[in-house]
Design a binder for these strands. Structure first.
Length: 589
RNA sequence: GGCCCAAUAGCUCAACCGGAUAGAGCAGCUGCCUUCUAAGCAGCAGGUUUCAGGUUCGAGUCCUGAUUGGGUCACCA
């Protein structure tokens, strides 16, 4: 039994025996003591003041005295107002360190076996990935890792939006203006090449619209009447009808995009276990909509379009199939959801990592699935995250203010390289090793920067701050790891002997190490990597303070072994925590 | 306009179920490398937690209302 359970039990026992008061265990609130006070953990006694019929101070004194006499780990206590600060003895901390050193079970994932599917990324295939995708991917990937550590079997997935008018736009522009250009002949990454033709289409359309407007046509009408637009519509129909020429072009250009995306994902360090393609799930969604119609769950309008009535849920009615028989986003999402639960019948949760501008969309989706009678509808969850803003304002692709994912990664890695060279600590390292390190630091900085903020909150992306390696950053934590490893290298083998007297900074560090599992569980429950990022910062700070306050290698044998033990545990804890964020650690930097 | 979300130091972010004197980092100022990695540490300065009420022993946190900003209400995805 943990000492915390013991304390809770003793408090309940005390109240029962002396005041005939039965305490619900959740009423026991034991927090880490704030650093301006003496103590390790603080018991809040306010809830017991009333049944004890005394002042908060006296209640604290009485309980403190009782705990000190009955819980062997407690060395002393002090009471300030209604706060009872408990100090654990050195033996407790020494044994805690010893236990963690001898059994690394605390680094192992839990086991529950529940199957969870996490969706993230889900890009369009007509433009390259950008900053917004980075937050999405890092978040989704990290949540997958966190859930695995919490014991789940995780399937990482995405739905690739590979059909529709937008794809045809790139295809048409390439066909018309591309001169058979390929990634090989142009030297462009596949996704960049296709994105280029998407832009060209837009430019050509604008030109034509301008001409039509000049000849007296209304602008809105011109957009629909432009011949290039009509050609795109015609291409879409051909695609839906399985026209061979269109399909082969579609396959060719999609392959370019996928190979481009793969390079980007690879550098980002994210991966997927199973892919879903909209081109394969939209017809399933349509079938479900039509079945729902015959079952009387949906209704039709005069033009033959199919709708879902959501009045009872207080939501707007939702279109599922257009009058012309084509489907919309919602229909595809229904098809995809059903497909997934057919593929993984044992799935207990599916997590959609999608921006908060789609909060309403998912509310509607889950409601429709419920109305369709799927018992698993309540297992669906929208992991909603806020938009990434730039100092210049919102990212808008039409205005050229998007931050390209590849460019950004290149920038942060270069910044890491420049900073490292300035410091000149790596002169004996091969250039291959150096490049590996710069990659680790740059990408680590970027991930940490994006994951540090509570996902639910909208955040500001300052490019200058993102390449900074000082302060509350990924490289600061990585540096602390490298520092630990340097100490351990110099120390060589050591055997832990235990300690009888511990100093304040050791106590603080040990306490931070002890909180590891609790922090990871919180992060898993809240699907919140930022909790882990902030824990990493706390731990790194605690270690650096400890490092500057005491001498590790040149202290007496007992102190040396304890401090090396703390150093070893710090390194392992940082490594595991950063690992759950998808950030790697260097042995030196 | 209806609904949803946010607002904390000059800037970017913390603050677990309501708990002590609201914490970090950046930017500014002061110190600390002949000793284990100074990408670090110690310190100074910086706050009416947007505003007005309410509940409570106790409110940045919960409730009501307002202000400001954002999102959404598509036969776009």
């Amino acid at each position: 039994m943990s000492v915390f359970n013991t304390i809770a039990q003793k408090v309940a026992e005390y109240l029962h025996e002396n005041h005939a008061f039965e305490l619900e265990s959740q009423k026991i609130q034991l927090d880490a003591t704030r650093k301006e006070f003496v103590g390790d953990y603080t018991l809040i006694v306010f809830p017991f003041v009333k049944p004890m019929r005394t002042s908060p101070e006296k209640a604290g004194e009485a309980i403190g005295e009782y705990l000190k006499n009955t819980v062997s780990e407690i060395e002393s206590y002090n009471v300030i107002k209604g706060f009872l600060n408990l100090t654990f003895n050195s033996i407790y901390w020494s044994e805690l360190v010893e236990e963690k050193l001898s059994d690394s079970g605390w680094l192992e994932p839990r086991t529950s076996g529940d199957l969870v599917l996490v969706e993230y990324s889900s890009p369009n295939t007509n433009k390259p990935l950008h900053l917004g995708h980075l937050r999405n991917n890092f978040l989704g990937h990290s949540v997958s890792l966190i859930k695995e550590f919490a014991g789940n079997d995780v399937v990482k997935t995405q739905i690739i939006n590979d059909r529709g008018v937008h794809i045809c736009k790139s295809m048409l522009a390439w066909k018309r203006f591309g001169n058979e250009e390929t990634p090989e002949t142009s030297g462009l990454k596949g996704d960049k090449l296709v994105g280029k033709y998407y832009v060209i289409f837009d430019q050509e359309l604008k030109k034509e619209v301008a001409m039509l407007v000049a000849s007296g046509m209304d602008e809105e009408v011109a957009k629909k009447e432009a011949s290039i637009m009509k050609d795109v519509q015609e291409m879409l129909v051909k695609w839906e009808n399985g026209d061979e020429e269109v399909l082969s072009l579609w396959n060719k250009m999609n392959a370019w995009v996928y190979s481009g995306f793969d390079k980007t994902y690879n550098r980002m360090g994210v991966s997927f276990d199973k892919l879903y393609y909209e081109s394969k799930t939209y017809s399933k969604g349509k079938q479900i909509a039509l079945d729902g119609l015959t079952k009387g769950l949906f209704y039709t309008k005069d033009d033959g379009s199919v709708w879902c009535n959501l009045d009872s849920a207080g939501m707007d009615n939702k279109l599922l199939v257009r009058g012309d028989g084509t489907t919309v986003y919602m229909t595809q999402d229904i098809g995809t959801a059903v497909q997934r639960f057919e593929d993984f019948p044992k799935m207990t949760q599916v997590v959609y990592t999608v921006g908060d501008e789609q909060d309403y969309h998912f509310k509607v989706l889950f409601k429709i699935l419920e109305n369709l009678g799927y018992s698993w509808a309540h297992n669906c969850q929208h992991l909603s995250y806020g938009m990434v803003d730039l100092p210049s304002g919102k990212m808008k692709s039409r205005e050229g203010t998007v931050v390209d994912a590849d460019d950004l990664m290149e920038d942060v890695v270069r910044a890491a390289c420049e900073s490292s060279e300035e410091k000149g600590k790596l002169d004996d390292m091969s250039s291959e090793e150096q490049n590996k390190l710069f990659e680790m630091l740059g990408i680590g900085a970027l991930k940490f920067f994006l994951l540090r903020v509570d996902p639910k909150k909208r955040m500001l992306f300052d490019p200058e701050e993102s390449v900074s390696l000082n302060g509350d950053t990924g490289p600061f934590v990585q540096y602390t790891y490298a520092r630990c490893k340097a100490v351990l290298r110099k120390a060589g083998e050591f055997t832990f002997t235990g300690i009888t007297e511990i100093v304040e900074k050791e106590r603080l560090l040990a306490r931070t190490l002890a909180a590891f599992r609790l922090e990871m569980d919180d992060a898993a429950n809240g699907m919140n990597p930022s909790a882990i990022a902030n824990y990493c910062l706390d731990l790194a700070k605690a270690y650096n303070q400890f490092y500057q306050a005491v001498n590790i290698l040149n202290s007496n044998a007992e102190e040396r072994s304890f401090r090396l033990g703390l150093t070893h545990l710090t390194a392992e804890t940082i490594k595991k925590s950063l690992d759950l964020l998808g950030v790697q650690v260097p042995d030196r930097m």
